[in-house]
Computed example of a mutant assay.
Amino acid sequence: MIIIAKNIKHLRSLKKLSQEALAEELSITRSRIGSYEENRSAPTIEVLIKLSDYFKIPIDILLRNDLTKSKDSSFIEIGNQRVLFPITVDDNNDNLIEVVPVKASAGYLAGYDDPEYIEQLQKIKLPFLPTGKHRAFPIKGDSMLPMKDGSFVIGRFIEDRQEIKTGKTYVLVTLNDGMVYKRVMNNIDLNGSLLLISDNKLYHGYSVPINEVLELWEFTCSINTQEYSEEELKISSILSMFNDLGVELKALEKHLK
Rank of each mutant, 00 (worst) to 15 (best):
82 R>M: 09
163 E>F: 04
106 A>C: 09
239 L>V: 06
66 D>Y: 02
125 K>R: 14
74 S>V: 06
177 D>H: 04
154 I>S: 02
123 K>I: 01
135 R>C: 08
148 K>P: 03
228 Y>C: 03
213 V>H: 05
243 N>R: 11
127 P>N: 11
40 R>A: 10
76 I>N: 03
254 K>N: 12
187 N>Q: 10
151 S>L: 00
248 E>H: 11
14 L>K: 08
225 T>I: 13
15 K>N: 11
256 L>H: 14
40 R>P: 01
102 V>W: 08
210 I>S: 08
43 P>Y: 06
227 E>H: 09
215 E>F: 01
237 S>D: 14
13 S>I: 04
72 D>F: 04
108 Y>R: 07
57 I>F: 02
31 S>R: 11
61 I>M: 10
226 Q>A: 09
206 Y>M: 06
112 Y>S: 13
207 S>D: 13
94 D>F: 09
178 G>P: 00
14 L>M: 15
105 S>A: 15
192 G>W: 02
53 D>T: 10
243 N>D: 14
60 D>W: 11
5 A>Y: 02
26 L>A: 14
164 I>C: 05
165 K>C: 09
252 L>Q: 10
161 R>Y: 12
136 A>I: 06
130 P>N: 06
131 T>S: 14
61 I>A: 13
154 I>G: 00
219 F>W: 10
6 K>G: 04
14 L>N: 05
219 F>E: 10
201 K>F: 08
196 L>A: 02
127 P>E: 06
148 K>Q: 13
126 L>R: 07
94 D>G: 01
7 N>Y: 03
136 A>P: 00
51 L>P: 05
155 G>F: 01
8 I>Y: 00
25 E>G: 03
180 V>G: 01
51 L>C: 07
186 N>T: 02
194 L>C: 00
188 I>D: 03
127 P>A: 06
82 R>E: 11
127 P>K: 11
27 S>R: 13
97 I>R: 02
89 V>Q: 13
67 L>R: 00
2 I>Y: 11
237 S>I: 06
120 Q>E: 15
150 G>F: 03
111 G>V: 07
195 L>E: 10
86 P>Y: 08
185 M>A: 12
162 Q>A: 13
165 K>G: 02
55 F>E: 05
190 L>W: 04
38 E>L: 13
204 H>I: 08
198 S>G: 07
134 H>L: 07
213 V>W: 05
150 G>E: 05
243 N>T: 11
86 P>M: 10
251 A>Q: 15
178 G>R: 01
186 N>C: 06
160 D>C: 02
212 E>D: 15
236 S>E: 12
157 F>W: 08
39 N>C: 07
5 A>I: 00
39 N>S: 13
18 S>D: 04
126 L>D: 06
14 L>G: 07
196 L>R: 01
33 I>H: 02
194 L>F: 08
160 D>K: 01
162 Q>M: 09
1 M>V: 10
123 K>E: 03
109 L>Y: 12
213 V>I: 15
31 S>V: 14
76 I>S: 04
49 I>D: 14
231 E>M: 08
120 Q>C: 07
118 I>L: 15
